[in-house]
Design a protein around this nucleic acid. Structure first.
Lengths: 83, 83
DNA sequence: CTATTTTATCGGAATTAGCGCATAATAGGG
DNA sequence: CCCTATTATGCGCTAATTCCGATAAAATAG
């Protein structure tokens, strides 16, 4: 489970994986994050213009958080981290 | 340097610190990130509705990146991480 | 294969980022 | 102190999220 989050797609994939690991539906996660199911759908599919506060709310609902770190050269495991 | 980024404010502060460490003005950073100086100003002051792609572009311009990790209990050093 | 859950999508309304252009306000150096 | 570089705001505009209320479409269960 790579936690690298350089693109909206990667973030969306990580959100989806974390949500499924907790056996939550988009609707359930949406409720906990205070947003709509539609919004979760957009985020998981990589909406690049999502609002920062929305992403943060979703991560918090999943007991996750961002960390800002020095950019590292992407290793083989991270290349094209689509799924 | 705490890289915890739970709120737009924390992210803004981290961006500002990283920018200054590199001796860049908002205008210079804006150019590198492909946005406007005003946008950098807003981000640094904690604009909660900033677009995700904008934040990612700014971080990339600073050679930084997000990582998504399990939320940890905020230690004493992170409490009220305003500056 | 059918029914139910889950996810993706639609129209409209409201809100707001980010752009262009421009200028106050603030900070810093000489 | 003053002048300059830097940062914070301003207005009009376009574009796009997000909300609301629903509903297709897709996936899963029975």
């Amino acid at each position: 489970m790579t936690d690298l989050a350089r693109t909206p797609q990667q973030i969306g994939n990580l959100v989806r994986r974390a949500r499924k690991k907790r056996d939550l539906s988009q609707t359930q996660l949406a409720d906990q994050a205070g947003v709509r199911q539609e919004t979760i759908s957009l985020i998981e599919t990589g909406n690049p213009a999502a609002r920062l506060e929305t992403i943060l709310a979703v991560l918090a609902a999943l007991d996750l958080e961002f960390r800002i770190v020095a950019r590292r050269k992407a290793g083989p495991a991270e290349i094209e981290e689509i799924f």
